[in-house]
Design a protein around this nucleic acid. Structure first.
Lengths: 220, 220
DNA sequence: CATTCATGTTGACAGTGTTAATATTCGTGC
DNA sequence: GCACGAATATTAACACTGTCAACATGAATG
């Protein structure tokens, strides 16, 4: 009913080390993804045109259709890569951080820092992009994995004695909290008439959340 | 350097009651905004074309330029209207609800209910649309006003004895929490392999937040 | 009635996503 | 070595979009 279907298949190089110029172009697709990510952070998602990406990769308008079904799939791929980067950052933060409350706060602040460091990418991952990432299972899975560190750290923080349902709710609340704080800041909603642009408010909010959460365990 | 500038100016009808067909069309602009809102909820923000809105209003492609500087300004107007609707809903919820924790929970659940009732509108308000609503002061102000009920209810809940900084942090955290929960649900991130699609998780998270927040006041 | 100015229309331009038809190369079997 | 099929890139075209300039229309007011 449609056509094309992006028939590529294997990758994994041509067995030789890394000449980086195997087929016609070398390996487009990743070149396209890189170019798209660069253009995204420069101009925003709505201005990211398929043709502009092709141009940035020194390739003609229709070439990307050999690697992506369309603009939407390219955006999805960039978003997926973003979720993987977020997951890596969260894992690193969880390992680096100390214990107890400070670990929770550290993870949350790192989440917000990621969003601020890559605002357009973060906006693509949540909100812009496609109405619902459910259409792209790879993206949905990457997103789910990026959430795991938060879930694990919060569960560890609450302790095994806490009922599983409460731990689930806490994880949900924790993700919602940091995600909401990040979005609000990216939107410019927290305009800070005075200075204090150093995530003071976010730190206070997360600390408040973590502290009161902790107090819950000791006093059922 | 540009042009046009949307020279309209007064509105307020022609002094006669409400014939609803004063000038050439009647009153376009609100017809356009209505049409845009309808198309938005049907097809999503990215598919909302200026020309389609003009078509839906039975008017020719360039007519809207007499009322809006461009597509972006139309989207901004729809978003502003959305924030006003959200504000009204929040005020109503705050008045309707009881007292104490239940009032906080009720307000939060109502916020999420609004987002679920108008998913595309909510996505336009936060995230899609323009990279930063700061360019449209009217939108920024409407957004700020929509946040007031949450701030007031949380401040009242915590009591006057709570330090102002803590109240601010709690309000920030509260908005971030409900906003984050709403976004996560709209994204389809909470896919609920079993049933339980009735905002159980969100209710639990908000309850957890409110309860532990309340416990904080009584035990400094 | 004539003028004026806000409003609506037509036509055009550049740019976009997408597809079909075509050309080029790569890997591989003979 | 060389022809062949598959993978990849290019060109040309279509419908659509946002935006603007030039023109037409009509309401209100002198």
């Amino acid at each position: 009913m449609n056509a094309k279907k992006t028939r590529n298949g294997n990758r994994t190089a041509t067995r030789k080390a890394a000449p980086a110029r195997a087929y016609h172009h070398g390996d487009l697709r990743s070149a396209l993804v890189s170019a798209a990510a660069a253009l995204l952070e420069r101009d925003g998602a709505e201005a990211l045109s398929f043709r502009a990406v092709a141009r940035a990769a020194n390739v003609s308008q229709a070439a990307p259709y050999n690697h992506f079904a369309g603009r939407e799939e390219l955006l999805a791929t960039v978003a997926e890569q973003g979720f993987r980067a977020l997951e890596a950052a969260q894992i690193a933060a969880a390992e680096r951080a100390g214990t107890g409350v400070s670990r929770v706060i550290s993870l949350g602040m790192d989440y917000i820092a990621f969003a601020i460091a890559h605002p357009q990418l973060y906006r693509l991952m949540f909100g812009v992009g496609v109405a619902n990432w459910c259409a792209y299972p790879a993206v949905a899975e990457a997103k789910h994995r990026a959430f795991e560190p938060t879930r694990a750290v919060l569960a560890d923080y609450l302790g095994a004695a806490t009922p599983s349902a409460t731990r689930e709710a806490a994880a949900h609340a924790g993700w919602g909290l940091v995600h909401g704080l990040a979005m609000l800041r990216l939107d410019g909603s927290v305009a800070d008439r005075a200075g204090s642009d150093d995530l003071e408010r976010e730190a206070a909010a997360i600390e408040l959340f973590a502290a009161s959460l902790g107090r819950m365990g000791s006093a059922p």
